[in-house]
Measured scan of single mutants.
Amino acid sequence: QGDIVVALYPYDGIHPDDLSFKKGEKMKVLEEHGEWWKAKSLLTKKEGFIPSNYVAKLN
């Protein structure tokens, strides 16, 4: 089961498979690959890669 993270900063995706998000948006982490994680937005239901240093895990 994936962790839920919250965006600390907004992110505008650079690549087509990036997931753009707004500050405060919550996402479910699907896979962790070093600095880039695959996640699904709980708001938009879209999936893509996010920079892990832009988010914090919720406990």
Rank of each mutant, 00 (worst) to 15 (best):
V5A: 07
A56P: 03
N53R: 14
E32M: 15
S41Q: 03
W36E: 05
G2D: 11
T44Q: 04
K28R: 14
D18L: 07
K40M: 14
K45G: 15
D17L: 11
L42E: 06
S20A: 08
L43D: 10
A39F: 01
E35A: 12
G34N: 07
Y9F: 12
V29N: 01
F21D: 01
L8H: 04
L19W: 02
G24K: 02
L8W: 04
L43P: 03
A56R: 14
S20Q: 07
A39D: 02
K46S: 07
E25N: 02
H33T: 10
K46G: 06
L30T: 06
D12W: 12
N59Q: 11
L58D: 09
K40Q: 14
V5M: 05
I50G: 01
K23A: 11
S52N: 08
D12R: 13
V5L: 05
S20D: 06
A56M: 14
I14S: 09
Q1D: 12
F21L: 01
P16G: 09
Y54G: 04
K28W: 14
K22P: 03
N59S: 14
Y54S: 06
G48N: 01
H15M: 08
K23G: 05
V5Y: 14
I14R: 12
K38R: 13
G34F: 04
K22E: 09
D18G: 10
P51T: 01
S41I: 04
P16Q: 10
E25P: 00
K46T: 06
L8Q: 05
Y9A: 08
Q1H: 12
E35V: 13
P16V: 10
V55N: 01
Y9I: 08
N53Q: 11
I14K: 13
A56D: 07
G34V: 04
E35F: 15
Y11G: 00
K57H: 11
K23V: 11
K38H: 08
P10W: 08
K57S: 09
V5C: 13
L42A: 03
L42H: 04
D3I: 15
S41R: 02
P16C: 11
Y11V: 02
Y11D: 00
K38G: 03
P16K: 10
L30A: 03
D3Q: 14
H33L: 11
H15F: 11
V5G: 02
A7K: 00
K40C: 12
H33C: 14
L58V: 13
E32L: 14
K40W: 09
S52P: 13
E25H: 03
E31Q: 10
I14P: 07
T44L: 02
D17N: 13
E31F: 09
I14F: 09
K28L: 15
E31P: 01
G34R: 05
K45Q: 14
E32K: 15
L8K: 07
D3L: 15
V5W: 13
K45C: 15
A39V: 14
L58Q: 07
N53I: 08
K57D: 06
K22C: 11
S20F: 04
K46I: 07
F21Y: 01
H33F: 12
K38P: 03
Y9S: 06
I4F: 08
H33G: 10
S52D: 05
W37R: 07
K23N: 04
E35H: 15
L42G: 01
Y9T: 06
T44A: 03
W36N: 06
K46Q: 10
G2P: 10
Y9E: 07
G24L: 04
P16I: 09
L19C: 03
P16M: 09
L19H: 00
V55A: 04
W36V: 10
P10M: 08
D18C: 13
S52I: 09
G48H: 00
K23Y: 07
N53T: 12
W37P: 06
D3R: 13
A56F: 10
S52K: 15
V5Q: 02
F49P: 00
E31T: 08
D3C: 15
H15Q: 10
E25Y: 02
L43I: 11
D12Y: 12
I50W: 01
L8E: 03
S20E: 06
E47Q: 10
D18F: 13
H33R: 11
L19S: 00
G13P: 07
P51F: 04
D3T: 15
I50K: 00
K23L: 08
K28I: 15
L8V: 07
E35D: 13
L42T: 05
N53G: 11
A39Y: 01
D17W: 15
K26T: 10
A56T: 13
G24Y: 06
G2F: 13
D12P: 10
Y11C: 05
E32N: 13
N53V: 08
G24M: 04
D12F: 13
L8F: 04
K38I: 12
V29T: 03
E47F: 06
K57Y: 14
G48M: 00
I4D: 04
Y9W: 12
D18A: 11
M27N: 01
D12H: 13
V6N: 02
N59G: 14
I50F: 06
S52M: 11
K22M: 10
Q1E: 13
I4A: 04
Y54H: 10
Q1M: 13
